[in-house]
């Protein structure tokens, strides 16, 4: 929470979490008719939003928090890769993918003595 400084964490939540997120829902109520989801600008914006999400996933793996950082990076990457391959192999099942990734990570963490 280092950047929050002296600001109340709840004020930060309102300004940095709630408002920038809620604006899309409010906008959705206001313009509920007449947004073309397949318009070019929307396609680009959705791709940018997906890119941001990819950035967060990478951040949590490469600059991992807490005890996850004690697990070797090679184990973290292998767990992600095997989880994803399992997801693709088992009828695009989120559950199967997460389960496989978790198994690899925990076994790898124990093996590496983390």
């Amino acid at each position: 929470m280092s950047t929050i400084g002296t600001m109340s964490p709840y004020l930060v939540l309102l300004l940095v979490g709630f408002l920038p997120n809620e604006i899309w829902r409010i906008l959705g109520v206001v313009v509920a008719h007449g947004i073309d989801e397949s318009s070019e600008v929307m396609v680009w914006l959705r791709a940018v939003a997906t890119g941001v999400l990819a950035g967060v996933i990478a951040k949590l793996i490469f600059a991992a928090p807490g005890t996850l950082a004690d697990v070797p990076l090679s184990v973290r990457l292998a767990a992600m890769a095997l989880g994803f391959v399992t997801f693709l192999a088992v009828r695009r099942s989120i559950f199967a993918g997460v389960l496989a990734g978790e198994a690899v990570l925990i076994i790898g963490a124990v093996a590496a003595g983390a």
Partner: peptide
């Protein structure tokens, strides 16, 4: 800004 970009997917859902 990052939160705002990630929230974009909510717009087509609400609409």
């Amino acid at each position: 800004l990052a939160v705002c970009l990630s929230g974009l997917r909510l717009l087509p859902m609400v609409v």
